[in-house]
């Protein structure tokens, strides 16, 4: 049971949702967009979150679509993780989604909720970062399209009331060789100690991480070490560890030493796997 009252709205259009948010906010109340609701419900139940209204995005057609259009894959923010993995349209994203929470929860979690929520891992972002995906944001002036790598800086930088409506990925990125590794402390279903997603494009490796810092990231420095010429894998990995070590997360899920150890052997395997493919 959620221990407080709130209102429920399910608008049919992005404009209706945005206007509603604005209106409720204007009354001095707290509205929240609602995707799968799993984070909102679990945090409210524990009194860690309070809102006066939820605005369910699942009635908005743009937010619910998943389709290929003009060589672009468009995924609505209210599309669930299991819809993404079952569709088979974006294998790396599908594999990443299939390792978040458990299968039944994946039938509720939305990609928008995973990206916009407060839980730090946001694993679906990793494929989107390395595949140069774009976010469609709806706000005061209608829709705008922006690179995920620009708008995500530790968190998705949305203006108040803005809605993440869709995510667009060019189709050529969907078929590059890839690696996805998720390592957890003990159980298979758990938050990551480390999740790595990498692709190889034109002989260059693009790589992103979750669990290593308190937000997911892709780092140009790390990519420049990995793609540096005339260096052994050991040298590359040592340089990455040296660069990253002081920033590695240290918490109950895993100490920074342990996470660094996991990073080292995960990188070794990732590089080996991607070196084999052209």
């Amino acid at each position: 049971m959620i221990p407080f009252k709130f209102e429920y709205y399910k608008p049919d259009t992005l404009k209706e949702a945005f206007d509603l948010y604005d209106y409720i906010k204007g009354q001095g109340k707290t509205p929240l967009y609602y995707g799968g609701g799993s984070e909102i419900i679990t945090m409210s139940r524990a009194n860690n979150l309070h809102m006066d209204a939820v605005i369910d995005l699942k009635g908005i057609p743009e937010c619910c679509r998943i389709e290929m259009l003009d060589n672009k894959l468009i995924i609505g923010s209210a599309v669930t993780l299991s819809q993404i993995s079952e569709s088979g349209l974006f294998p790396l994203l599908g594999q990443t989604a299939a390792r978040i929470a458990d299968h039944t929860v994946q039938c509720r979690l939305t990609i928008g909720g995973n990206i916009c929520g407060t839980i730090i891992y946001k694993e679906t972002l990793l494929p989107l970062m390395i595949c140069e995906s774009r976010a469609v944001i709806y706000g005061k002036n209608g829709k705008r399209e922006v690179q995920i790598n620009q708008i995500f800086d530790k968190k998705l930088r949305l203006m108040p009331g803005e809605i993440l409506s869709e995510i667009i990925t060019d189709s050529n990125y969907l078929s590059f060789p890839y690696v996805h590794v998720k390592k957890t402390k003990s159980d298979k279903i758990a938050y990551p100690l480390l999740t790595v997603a990498a692709i190889k494009k034109d002989n260059n490796i693009k790589i992103a991480f979750s669990g290593l810092e308190n937000h997911p990231f892709r780092s140009r420095e790390i990519e420049s070490f990995i793609n540096g010429e005339n260096m052994s894998d050991d040298d590359k990995i040592n340089r990455i560890i040296g660069f990253q070590q002081s920033k590695v997360l240290d918490d109950a899920e895993g100490s920074s030493c342990y996470r660094t150890f996991v990073l080292k052997n995960t990188l070794e395997n990732t590089l080996k796997m991607l070196e084999k493919v052209k």
């Binding site: 419900i41 369910d56 039938c107």
Partner: peptide
């Protein structure tokens, strides 16, 4: 599809 009914609102 299987769903955990503790993390779904009735009104949804």
């Amino acid at each position: 599809w299987s769903v955990k009914s503790c993390i779904v609102l009735t009104v949804e």
